[in-house]
Each structure stands twice: as C-alpha cells, then as structure tokens.
Design a protein around this nucleic acid. Structure first.
Lengths: 231, 231
DNA sequence: CGGCCTGTTGATGCGACTCAATTCAGGTGG
DNA sequence: CCACCTGAATTGAGTCGCATCAACAGGCCG
C-alpha cells in the first residue's frame, strides 16, 4: 500500500511542501470512506475540518426548501473540498454528497491551521486554491445572471473538450463525466430543459451524440452560442 | 493630513500587522483618484496590483455583449478590491467602475506578494478576506439559481436592516445605499422588474417607502418571502 | 419479470425581460 | 425664477424562456 505521504504530495494544495511538513500532514490525515449518496457534511454545520478526495466523486450543492438543487462544484480525485470553511468562522457554505463510493482523507481544522501558520508554502498554496475557486464562482455567477441555458451548455461542452483533448476542434468527442440530471443542476436548470437544449444543439448541427458520447461538429457555431448569440 | 500608516492600519486586511510592516505598506501604497464613472480596471486585463478604497463607492461588474450587466459587489470605503486577482495568474475577473468620485491606494502586485511571504499575519488576513468573499459569492449563486426576484429583494432588505440597526424589527427604516438601477443589477434583474417587485412588497404591507426611505412593516412576511414562499 | 432510475417528449402556465410611453427629480443656464 | 435637459423611476402591453406537470421509453438489477 502506498504510504500516506506519497499520496499527499500529489495533491495540489500540498505541492512544494518539505518532507517534514508532509510527514506531519500524513500523521494528521484520517482516512474516511463514504458510500454513494452519503452526506459528507451539511450546509451550515460547523466546519471542524476539510477533506481530500482520493477516489470517487463528490458534489457540493445548495438545495431549496421545495426540493430544487444547484450544484456549485463537482469534486474529482486529487482535489480538496471544505477548505475555505475552516478559515472562515461560519459553517460549511454548502452540502457535500458522495456521488459514488468515496475514499477521502480528513484533516481536522486545528491541526491544519497550526500547520498553516508554520508553513508559508502551504499558506501560499491555500491562497492560490482559493483564488481559483473565486475565479470559478465569479464565472458561474456571470453565466447564471447574463446567459441563457443554451450558452451555458455550449460553454460547458467547450470547456470539457478543452480539458480532455487540450484543444477545441470539430470531430473531437468525449463522454459526459456526470449524469445529465446532475449536469442540469450544475448548469442551473432542470433535466427536461437540458434535454431539449441538447436536442436543439444537435438539430443545429453543432454536436452529435451517440450512447452518451458527445462529438463536436461545428465549433464556431458552438462558440457563438457560448458567447450568447441567439439561436 | 493623516499619515498613510494610520489610514492603512484601519483596513481589515492589514489589522494586527506590526509597525514595521505597516510602514513598508505605507511606503508602497500609491494614492490614486478616479472620477465618477471612470473604469478602474477592466475584466480580463492583467492584474498588476490591487486597490484599497478610502472614499467613494465602486462597483465590480460583469457585462454581456448586449449591454446587460451584473454587479458582483459594491465596494465601500475601508474595503479592498482586486486582491484575489493578484494571487491568481489570470487577469481581473471583473470590471471595476467608480460610482462616485473615489480616492484609493494602489498596491503593486510584486511588492505586495513580497510582503505576503514575509508576514504570516498578512497571509492569514488575506485568507480570511478570501473566504469571506467565497462565502458571499456562494450565497449569491444560491440566490440566483434557486430563488426568484422577490426573495432576493426581501433578503437584501433584511440584510440591510440588520447591517444598519443590528436587528430586524417592524418600524425600522433605512435608505438604499445605491440607486435602484444598480440594485436591480446587483440582484440579477432589471430596474423595471425591481420597481414592480418593490411595488408588490408595498401592496402586501411588508414595507413602506417614502422619498427613497424604506420602512419595514411586517418582518415575518418579509422573512417568509426571503425564504421562498410564493407571494 | 417487475421495479427503479435516467432520460426524453409534449402541453401548459408563470415569471421575468423587452419595448415603449410617461412621470419625476435634480441640475443647468438664460 | 422658470424653462430646459438629463437620468432615474414607474407603468402598461406583449413576448419569451424556462419550469411545471404528466406520460412514456430504455437500461440496469434484484
């Protein structure tokens, strides 16, 4: 079995840390597993620590009294979540739920804060992580307030293509990493609307879909839709 | 004239800093003035520094090709803006515009980063600031995706009342700190809709308005609307 | 096989945006 | 002091995007 230290050193938040700090972290990190659909933490609850996702997939979400939900972020292996909450004195800003069986490390708040004051590198990484999160949230706000569903979907598909292939080009294809219902909640809509919008992109010739596999056909069109051209 | 140092020590981001660091900051801070409607920085432009607002009011906003705008945050004196951008390598995530004639200090990125690595207190303050921003943005996302305009408006009014009087109670009144057009852009809608929604709150007896002065009449009703009850 | 979850499609209704007209308040200059 | 202008705020009519409700098809698994 891989030692904890070797796992931790691959996490972005801990990159560049010296061996001593990594060993300290390895001592502090507590393995925790969650089954599919388990709630990892609830929005508003006091944040006593944060998580490092090693295996599986987690959604960070807000939900309304009448059952609607909005997905703030999908967490993938190697990423951390709940970090920001241990800095603020408020509780977790959202609810975390396991989308698959998950394997995590848990880092208690007090230990982490202690290490944070001792290690400038860690503090710097933390700042970088948080500014990335801020950037991400800012863009989501822009999308929700200024763009319609078709634009948000087109942008999502382009981002995904870029992430998978490093470029955007007609003919490239990829799978959706989450179910369409979840994707709808992530785009701030519902599955019915997503289904119709995806259908419209297909009938316009922007994309094709086969067995959950999306292929980009007309990237110029897709980019125009993402920018907000009426379709 | 008040020495720069004494001004800086009242800024939250710099609280608890030792005299030496404050003096360094005071040497680095460059006074900059902006007239009403001046753009302080554009979204996407490289962030070479950030600002401390001393006097005036600034809006941070995103705008779409067809002229709509969304206000991410209204900056008030004593607050900083653009800080997150100097940490990330991406440019400014939004455009900053002066709503009134403004007086600011400008802190160049390189100098600030240098001080940041030298001062754990400053790093800690920066982390706290950023987690507050994250919290704030998260709530805005929740509101935009899950709530309708009436809820967002009711919530805004309640927040404002709490901020002004320290409590929420029927009979308390306050002024809107920004124009209704700006408020509309902040709530993710347009002035016509805001006007109608405000009218609805009045006719329901939740609030009254006289010469731009809002008075809370029925806080239970207002709180229910804020939580999402249909009205 | 039957249940369950995911996804698709159709009909309908509501919230909010658009466009246009009007009023109002503040500031300017003759 | 009043006429004038400009930007803010309000109000009405019409439209559109998207959510809602409902029905149904396909895949997976006990």
């Amino acid at each position: 079995m891989t030692p904890k230290k070797d796992i931790l050193k691959k996490i972005y938040l801990f990159s560049g840390l010296n061996e001593r700090d990594l060993e300290t972290l390895a001592r502090l990190a507590i393995p925790r597993r969650f089954v599919r659909d388990a709630v990892i933490f609830w929005e508003g609850r006091e944040a006593r620590g944060f998580f490092i996702l090693l295996e599986g997939q987690v959604k960070l979400m807000k939900s309304s009294p009448d059952g609607k939900e909005y997905i703030l972020r999908i967490v993938n292996p190697g990423e951390t979540f709940g970090e920001a909450a241990v800095l603020a004195e408020a509780g977790y800003p959202a609810t975390a739920m396991a989308l698959e069986d998950c394997h995590t490390f848990y880092l208690p708040k007090a230990d982490f804060l202690h290490l944070l004051t001792a290690s400038p590198t860690l503090a710097r990484n933390m700042l970088a992580t948080m500014s990335w999160l801020l950037f991400h949230l800012t863009r989501q706000l822009e999308d929700l307030s200024l763009k319609e569903v078709s634009s948000r979907l087109a942008q999502y598909l382009l981002d995904l293509c870029l992430q998978r292939h490093g470029r955007i080009e007609a003919g490239l294809s990829f799978e959706l990493p989450i179910t369409k219902t979840h994707l709808a909640a992530y785009l701030g809509t519902i599955s019915e609307t997503l289904s119709r919008t995806l259908g419209r992109l297909k009938s316009l010739g922007a994309i094709t879909e086969e067995k959950g596999n999306i292929t980009i056909q007309d990237c110029t069109l897709l980019q125009n839709i993402a920018k907000g051209s009426r379709i």
